[in-house]
Design a protein around this nucleic acid. Structure first.
Lengths: 145, 145
DNA sequence: TGCGATTTAATCGCGCGCGATTTATCTTGT
DNA sequence: ACAAGATAAATCGCGCGCGATTAAATCGCA
């Protein structure tokens, strides 16, 4: 009654990434919904905690997302009171995204998340770091052709 | 004017998978749209090429997706004439998904895709296989807790 | 200075993913 | 044989991702 996941070799790497990403988001979900966040929203907050007041474009570079994804996401975060979006007075084309007190305040409440995920992964920090570097190398290869 | 992607250590593994998955789908896109397929539709076809006539649930196991994702996806593929969906006469709860001639015919036209992706990845088959196994191990760890 | 080219966000449309619920069918225990 | 429970797929709502397009602001260069 079982289905062998008998996918060809090259497809399996893609499927691995695909399903591992879903599993990762699934692992984050209970931790994040306690904070009222989705996974991409959390990634945006992490980027803003590291550097507040970034433009939409800079966030796009950091998160590898376009404005067509970021604009509605940031609007929802603004509606939640986590960030403020404002045109840059020096260059009105750009929109700067700044944390509110509530947005900054979430950093402390989210402090335990990385450790919790690390534990769920069942891997050592060294192994995860090595894996990360390989996955990043693959991603960068794919991006530049 | 650049943004350092200065994300904390544990987040970076997740972000790696997240962005590598997007990069992978981006790499597949031009190859797949020549066939009129999306990436999840292609994965479903690959699974059906390996084993035709699977139920929605079996496909869900193979692709790690639920019926709430698969049903509309398969309906779109049926509308394109790639598959047929039919209730199993032995157990009317189940729906079997079978390839049409057109769906089977795509296999030949898609034969070059894995090699093309392999080339774009810039990695050896051995390296990709090793990476796949590590990513699968991480995914399985995350799934079972 | 002025006008076309470029840059930046925003908008639109569509296809996923998935939590939660619903409907139809089958199984089980008595 | 029948009701209670279990199982399979479908439905609903919402938040991404992203290709394509649009609108506004800035830049470049004659």
């Amino acid at each position: 009654m079982d289905t062998k996941p008998a996918l060809p070799t090259a497809e399996m790497i893609c499927f691995s990434l695909y399903s591992a990403t879903h599993a990762m988001q699934h692992a984050y979900k209970p931790l994040l919904e306690a904070l009222g966040l989705t996974y991409p929203q959390y990634l945006a907050l992490v980027a803003l905690w590291a550097a507040d007041g970034q433009t939409v474009g800079q966030l796009g570079v950091a998160l590898q997302l376009e404005s067509n994804t970021l604009t509605p996401l940031l609007k929802r975060m603004e509606a939640q009171g986590l960030v403020v979006r404002a045109r840059d007075s020096r260059d009105e084309r750009q929109v700067r995204v700044s944390l509110t007190d509530a947005g900054r305040g979430l950093q402390a409440r989210a402090a335990g998340i990385p450790g919790c995920i690390l534990e769920k992964s069942g891997m050592s920090l060294a192994a995860l770091t090595a894996l990360r570097d390989q996955v990043n190398a693959l991603r960068d290869q794919l991006r530049e052709r």
